[in-house]
């Protein structure tokens, strides 16, 4: 078996072993399903409540992806503004940090009071925690351009705009992609955390609300099912952003080395 095969088979084997031990533990201890359901209970719940949960998953996913897109767009733009003017960076960066270090759960109630559409309110919450890694990483990247290359661009008469497009932006790409990978997970966390605070019922509800609802009704297998869907979503987001990162950097950046070949 090749090394890639081992990398897939080994963690899967650990997972199967864990699930088997979990089921065995539940059987042997006789613990009630409303305290700790076994994997079979969870699977049943996933099967019966699946369609309802998927609708909620879709809602959470929409919030997550739109927030991530907004974080990429505004985070990138803010980073470019910072890189163009040291004064702007010095003036505004502390406020970006304040926005980042203030716990989301503390400001989410305010946002939910101010913004009446639940979707938009959740979006803003998710965006607030997703955009910082992109701003911070991209700003460092834009400022990391090789000084001699900057000199060379100036020697050939390049404009600030050309230096930005042909030198600073490509230099910042690996940094930006690192930010993206972090922000992908954070926007999901933001979307879920904000919904916990909002606790919105209404027509459109996300997975967080499903978890709260299952807890109130002691439908713990369904709670677990929702949790599993959330984890899977997070894993998929990570894998996709990681794949994009490797694809974009495959020719030139050391981080894209797989270590499998050669």
């Amino acid at each position: 078996m090749n090394r890639l095969g081992v990398r897939i088979v080994a963690p899967v084997a650990v997972g199967i072993l864990f699930i088997a031990l979990w089921q065995l533990g539940v059987w042997l201890s006789g613990v009630k399903p409303y305290v700790l359901p076994g994997p079979i209970d969870v699977a049943q719940s996933l099967w019966t409540d699946g369609s309802g949960l998927l609708v909620s998953l879709w809602f959470t996913l929409k919030v997550t992806l739109v927030a991530l897109a907004a974080a990429v767009l505004f985070g990138g733009l803010i980073a470019i503004l910072f890189s163009l003017s040291r004064l702007v960076e010095i003036s505004f960066f502390p406020y970006v940090v304040i926005l980042q270090v203030t716990p989301l759960v503390a400001i989410a109630p305010l946002i939910i009071i101010w913004i009446h559409t639940p979707f938009i309110a959740l979006l803003v919450c998710a965006w607030i925690i997703a955009f910082f890694p992109i701003v911070a990483n991209t700003t460092v990247g834009l400022n990391s351009a090789d000084r001699n290359l900057v000199a060379l661009f100036r020697l050939y008469g390049a404009s600030t705009w050309q230096v930005l497009c042909h030198l600073r932006m490509p230099t910042a790409l690996p940094y930006f992609l690192t930010g993206l990978r972090i922000s992908g997970g954070l926007s999901l966390i933001g979307a879920v955390a904000a919904e916990f605070v909002a606790g919105t019922g209404g027509e459109e509800t996300g997975l967080a609300y499903r978890i709260l609802e299952s807890e109130y009704r002691l439908m713990i297998p369904r709670l677990f099912a929702a949790l599993i869907l959330l984890s899977l979503t997070g894993i998929v987001i990570y894998l996709v952003t990681d794949f994009i990162s490797r694809l974009v950097l495959r020719h030139w950046h050391e981080s894209a080395e797989t270590g499998e070949e050669e």
């Binding site: 090789d146 001699n148 060379l152 020697l155 050939y156 008469g157 490509p170 790409l173 030139w252 950046h253």
Partner: peptide, 17 residues
């Protein structure tokens, strides 16, 4: 302008190109 070439101690290439 355009008549001077410069070579640095390091190759100073763009790794993405």
């Amino acid at each position: 302008s355009g008549r001077v070439g410069f070579v640095f101690q390091d190759p100073t290439l763009m790794p993405w190109s």
